[in-house]
Amino acid sequence: MSDIVPSIIEIKHYLNQSIVLADVISIKLIIPSTQMLIPYALEKINAGFPSPAQDYIDKALDMNEHLIKNETATFIVKVASLSMLNAGIDIDDELIVDRSLDAKHGDIVVALIDNDFTVKRLMIDEKGQWLKAENPDYKNIYLQEGQELIIWGVVTCIIKMIRNKS
Protein backbone atom coordinates (compact mmCIF):
# COMPACT_ATOMS: atom_id res chain seq x y z
CA MET A 1 0.00 0.00 0.00
CA SER A 2 2.61 2.42 1.10
CA ASP A 3 4.49 1.73 -2.17
CA ILE A 4 1.67 3.10 -4.23
CA VAL A 5 1.08 6.36 -2.49
CA PRO A 6 3.89 8.32 -4.13
CA SER A 7 2.90 6.99 -7.56
CA ILE A 8 -0.51 8.51 -7.17
CA ILE A 9 1.06 11.89 -6.72
CA GLU A 10 3.07 11.27 -9.86
CA ILE A 11 -0.03 10.42 -11.82
CA LYS A 12 -1.72 13.60 -10.77
CA HIS A 13 1.34 15.39 -11.98
CA TYR A 14 1.26 13.59 -15.32
CA LEU A 15 -2.40 14.29 -15.76
CA ASN A 16 -1.78 17.97 -15.43
CA GLN A 17 0.95 17.90 -18.04
CA SER A 18 0.00 18.16 -21.66
CA ILE A 19 1.57 15.31 -23.54
CA VAL A 20 3.64 16.57 -26.42
CA LEU A 21 5.68 13.59 -27.48
CA ALA A 22 3.89 11.92 -30.36
CA ASP A 23 5.22 8.44 -29.57
CA VAL A 24 3.94 8.49 -26.05
CA ILE A 25 0.49 7.07 -26.42
CA SER A 26 -0.40 6.70 -22.80
CA ILE A 27 1.25 6.90 -19.49
CA LYS A 28 0.56 4.06 -17.17
CA LEU A 29 1.34 3.39 -13.59
CA ILE A 30 4.13 0.87 -13.35
CA ILE A 31 4.27 -1.37 -10.33
CA PRO A 32 7.28 -3.62 -10.78
CA SER A 33 5.77 -6.31 -8.64
CA THR A 34 3.29 -9.11 -9.09
CA GLN A 35 1.44 -7.98 -6.04
CA MET A 36 -1.02 -5.38 -7.11
CA LEU A 37 -2.19 -3.66 -3.99
CA ILE A 38 -5.31 -1.60 -3.90
CA PRO A 39 -4.90 1.54 -1.82
CA TYR A 40 -7.91 1.32 0.45
CA ALA A 41 -6.48 3.67 3.03
CA LEU A 42 -5.90 6.32 0.46
CA GLU A 43 -9.53 6.31 -0.61
CA LYS A 44 -10.56 6.80 2.97
CA ILE A 45 -8.37 9.82 3.33
CA ASN A 46 -9.74 11.24 0.11
CA ALA A 47 -13.33 10.70 1.15
CA GLY A 48 -15.52 13.08 -0.77
CA PHE A 49 -13.14 13.32 -3.70
CA PRO A 50 -13.13 10.74 -6.49
CA SER A 51 -9.87 8.84 -6.15
CA PRO A 52 -7.71 9.40 -9.22
CA ALA A 53 -6.15 6.01 -8.49
CA GLN A 54 -9.25 4.01 -9.20
CA ASP A 55 -9.14 4.55 -12.94
CA TYR A 56 -5.52 3.66 -13.14
CA ILE A 57 -5.14 0.59 -10.97
CA ASP A 58 -6.37 -1.85 -13.61
CA LYS A 59 -4.10 -0.32 -16.18
CA ALA A 60 -1.03 -0.93 -14.05
CA LEU A 61 1.80 -2.66 -15.81
CA ASP A 62 3.31 -5.62 -14.11
CA MET A 63 6.93 -6.04 -15.22
CA ASN A 64 7.07 -9.62 -13.99
CA GLU A 65 4.05 -10.52 -16.03
CA HIS A 66 5.53 -8.79 -19.05
CA LEU A 67 9.01 -10.29 -18.88
CA ILE A 68 8.45 -13.68 -17.29
CA LYS A 69 6.13 -16.20 -18.86
CA ASN A 70 6.87 -19.14 -16.60
CA GLU A 71 7.93 -18.03 -13.15
CA THR A 72 8.77 -21.50 -11.79
CA ALA A 73 11.26 -22.23 -14.56
CA THR A 74 12.81 -18.75 -14.82
CA PHE A 75 16.24 -17.81 -13.54
CA ILE A 76 18.19 -14.59 -13.84
CA VAL A 77 21.91 -14.67 -14.55
CA LYS A 78 24.56 -12.00 -14.88
CA VAL A 79 26.94 -11.82 -17.82
CA ALA A 80 30.68 -11.46 -17.33
CA SER A 81 31.80 -11.99 -20.91
CA LEU A 82 31.95 -9.93 -24.10
CA SER A 83 31.44 -12.91 -26.38
CA MET A 84 27.86 -11.90 -27.26
CA LEU A 85 28.44 -8.15 -27.55
CA ASN A 86 27.06 -7.90 -31.09
CA ALA A 87 23.85 -9.53 -29.94
CA GLY A 88 23.53 -6.67 -27.46
CA ILE A 89 24.78 -8.57 -24.43
CA ASP A 90 27.42 -6.66 -22.51
CA ILE A 91 29.25 -7.27 -19.27
CA ASP A 92 26.98 -6.90 -16.22
CA ASP A 93 23.82 -7.27 -18.27
CA GLU A 94 21.29 -9.56 -16.70
CA LEU A 95 19.62 -12.27 -18.69
CA ILE A 96 16.21 -13.76 -18.07
CA VAL A 97 16.52 -17.48 -18.71
CA ASP A 98 13.53 -19.76 -19.14
CA ARG A 99 14.44 -23.40 -18.61
CA SER A 100 11.04 -24.72 -19.66
CA LEU A 101 11.54 -23.70 -23.31
CA ASP A 102 12.94 -26.07 -25.90
CA ALA A 103 15.98 -24.44 -27.50
CA LYS A 104 15.63 -23.86 -31.21
CA HIS A 105 18.16 -22.96 -33.91
CA GLY A 106 19.11 -19.31 -33.45
CA ASP A 107 18.11 -19.04 -29.79
CA ILE A 108 20.56 -17.45 -27.39
CA VAL A 109 21.15 -20.04 -24.71
CA VAL A 110 22.95 -20.55 -21.46
CA ALA A 111 24.73 -23.84 -21.97
CA LEU A 112 27.14 -26.15 -20.23
CA ILE A 113 30.27 -27.47 -21.89
CA ASP A 114 32.44 -29.65 -19.66
CA ASN A 115 30.45 -28.34 -16.67
CA ASP A 116 31.33 -24.72 -17.51
CA PHE A 117 28.66 -22.10 -18.15
CA THR A 118 28.64 -20.21 -21.41
CA VAL A 119 26.18 -17.92 -23.16
CA LYS A 120 26.08 -18.24 -26.95
CA ARG A 121 23.74 -18.50 -29.91
CA LEU A 122 22.67 -22.09 -30.52
CA MET A 123 23.15 -23.22 -34.10
CA ILE A 124 21.67 -26.46 -35.39
CA ASP A 125 22.72 -27.45 -38.92
CA GLU A 126 24.25 -30.33 -40.87
CA LYS A 127 27.27 -30.22 -38.53
CA GLY A 128 24.96 -30.84 -35.62
CA GLN A 129 24.75 -28.44 -32.70
CA TRP A 130 27.34 -25.73 -32.19
CA LEU A 131 27.55 -22.46 -30.35
CA LYS A 132 28.12 -19.19 -32.13
CA ALA A 133 29.84 -16.26 -30.46
CA GLU A 134 28.47 -12.84 -31.46
CA ASN A 135 31.82 -11.07 -31.30
CA PRO A 136 34.62 -11.59 -33.86
CA ASP A 137 37.18 -11.64 -31.04
CA TYR A 138 35.66 -14.80 -29.62
CA LYS A 139 35.69 -18.30 -31.04
CA ASN A 140 32.64 -20.36 -31.88
CA ILE A 141 32.37 -23.57 -29.92
CA TYR A 142 32.29 -26.82 -31.86
CA LEU A 143 31.96 -29.98 -29.85
CA GLN A 144 35.11 -32.07 -29.56
CA GLU A 145 35.04 -35.84 -29.47
CA GLY A 146 33.42 -36.92 -26.21
CA GLN A 147 32.22 -33.42 -25.35
CA GLU A 148 28.59 -32.89 -24.52
CA LEU A 149 26.51 -29.76 -24.94
CA ILE A 150 23.88 -29.33 -22.26
CA ILE A 151 21.34 -26.55 -22.71
CA TRP A 152 20.84 -25.01 -19.26
CA GLY A 153 18.14 -22.60 -20.40
CA VAL A 154 16.94 -20.32 -23.19
CA VAL A 155 17.57 -16.57 -22.86
CA THR A 156 14.32 -14.67 -23.38
CA CYS A 157 15.29 -11.17 -22.39
CA ILE A 158 18.26 -8.91 -21.67
CA ILE A 159 18.07 -6.48 -18.77
CA LYS A 160 20.40 -3.65 -19.57
CA MET A 161 20.83 -0.85 -17.10
CA ILE A 162 21.85 2.16 -19.12
CA ARG A 163 22.27 4.62 -16.31
CA ASN A 164 24.25 4.45 -13.07
CA LYS A 165 26.00 1.34 -14.17
CA SER A 166 27.82 0.98 -10.86
Binding site: A80, F117, V119
Partner: peptide, 9 residues
Amino acid sequence: WGELLKIYN
Protein backbone atom coordinates in the same frame (compact mmCIF):
# COMPACT_ATOMS: atom_id res chain seq x y z
CA TRP B 1 20.20 -9.38 -7.27
CA GLY B 2 23.65 -8.99 -5.77
CA GLU B 3 24.52 -12.67 -6.00
CA LEU B 4 23.24 -13.73 -9.43
CA LEU B 5 24.83 -16.64 -11.21
CA LYS B 6 27.68 -15.20 -13.31
CA ILE B 7 28.57 -16.49 -16.74
CA TYR B 8 32.16 -15.90 -17.72
CA ASN B 9 32.27 -17.45 -21.20
